[in-house]
Computed example of a mutant assay.
Amino acid sequence: MSAATTIRNRFVDGPDSLAERYRARRWEQLRTEFPDIADMTIVDLGGTVSSWRRAPVRPRKVIVLSFEPEGADDVDWIESHHADACDLPAPFRDLRADLVYSNAVIEHVGGAERRQRFADSVHRLADHHWVQTPYRYFPVEPHWLFPGFQFLPVPARVAVSRRWRLVHTPNSDRQAAVDNVLSVELIGLTELRNLFPTSRVLTERAAGLVKSIIAVR
């Protein structure tokens, strides 16, 4: 195992990583915010079946809407469907759930207009929501584990993406690196509050600094 892989496992990818500990803490926070979650139908926008299989919470039903749906035939409480959360297919436009859940998705949907459409879908699907996203102004960008990566011009981010050894999947192909760089656009508190004006915003901290932000209603 390379030194870079060891470092990524320690901070992000490993089962005992710092990121995994934060995820566990976030599940507990979700349970605290919604103590009747066991009786809820939840729509997960952009999530995965596997994350719900591992989750320490068990809702009555979970409907995952994602570009890359996973099989869930062997789990009677999870459904998984192909859908664009920013432009819901007709079968899901009248869907109503108890809670919309989304974890680290809104920063990937592609620009301010699509983020607004994503938020519109959240409001349309349920009265309650939990929408988490990494905080733009945390000093280490969480996808590349590179300090200040999100503030660099695109050519510099592409160069880092192709050479930085802590990247999850290095991009030797320049176009793939460009696509990956442009697929992530972190947001801050002002935009989150604008997208979810009636929500409370919770903050998750690391070393005293805001690491991620969560819109909850």
Rank of each mutant, 00 (worst) to 15 (best):
R193W: 00
V158Y: 04
E113Y: 00
R136I: 04
D73H: 09
G111I: 01
N9D: 11
V62K: 02
F149D: 06
P35D: 07
D84N: 15
N171Q: 14
S80E: 08
F149M: 09
A177G: 14
V49W: 04
P197N: 06
T190K: 13
S183D: 14
D127T: 11
R114I: 01
N194F: 01
Y137D: 15
R115G: 04
L18V: 14
E141L: 00
L186N: 09
D84F: 02
V49L: 07
D120H: 07
F92Q: 08
V109T: 06
F92I: 08
P59A: 04
S212Q: 14
D76L: 08
S17H: 05
K211I: 04
V43D: 07
P15N: 01
L65Q: 08
K61F: 01
T203R: 11
A3T: 15
A104V: 13
E70S: 07
R26L: 06
R117Q: 12
L45D: 05
V158F: 03
L65G: 06
V12N: 00
T5L: 12
P142S: 10
W164C: 01
I213R: 03
A38Q: 14
A85N: 04
R31Q: 08
E113W: 02
V210G: 01
V201H: 00
R193T: 07
I37P: 11
I42K: 06
T133P: 09
R157M: 05
H81K: 03
D98W: 05
H81C: 05
T5F: 01
E28G: 12
P197S: 08
L209R: 14
E107T: 12
F138T: 08
K61C: 06
V12Y: 00
S102I: 11
N171E: 10
E28T: 15
S80M: 07
S102Y: 10
S161P: 02
V64H: 06
F151K: 10
C86S: 11
Q150I: 05
Q132H: 12
P142H: 06
N194D: 11
L125Y: 05
R58Y: 01
Y135H: 13
V184H: 15
C86M: 03
E79M: 03
A90H: 11
E33H: 06
S2Q: 05
V57I: 15
A156H: 12
T48M: 09
Q29F: 08
A112L: 12
H129W: 09
R157A: 06
Q132N: 08
H123N: 10
R8G: 00
R200Y: 00
W130F: 15
G71K: 13
E20G: 03
V154W: 03
F11V: 12
M40T: 13
P69W: 12
L209M: 15
W27F: 09
E204I: 02
A83F: 02
L18P: 10
S50T: 12
R115T: 01
R114E: 04
A97Q: 08
V43Q: 09
Q175G: 10
R114P: 02
N103S: 13
V184Y: 06
L195M: 14
E70G: 03
E70L: 10
E68L: 12
H81T: 06
R53E: 10
V49M: 06
L166F: 00
P155K: 07
E79L: 03
D87Q: 10
P56K: 09
F151R: 14
D173V: 04
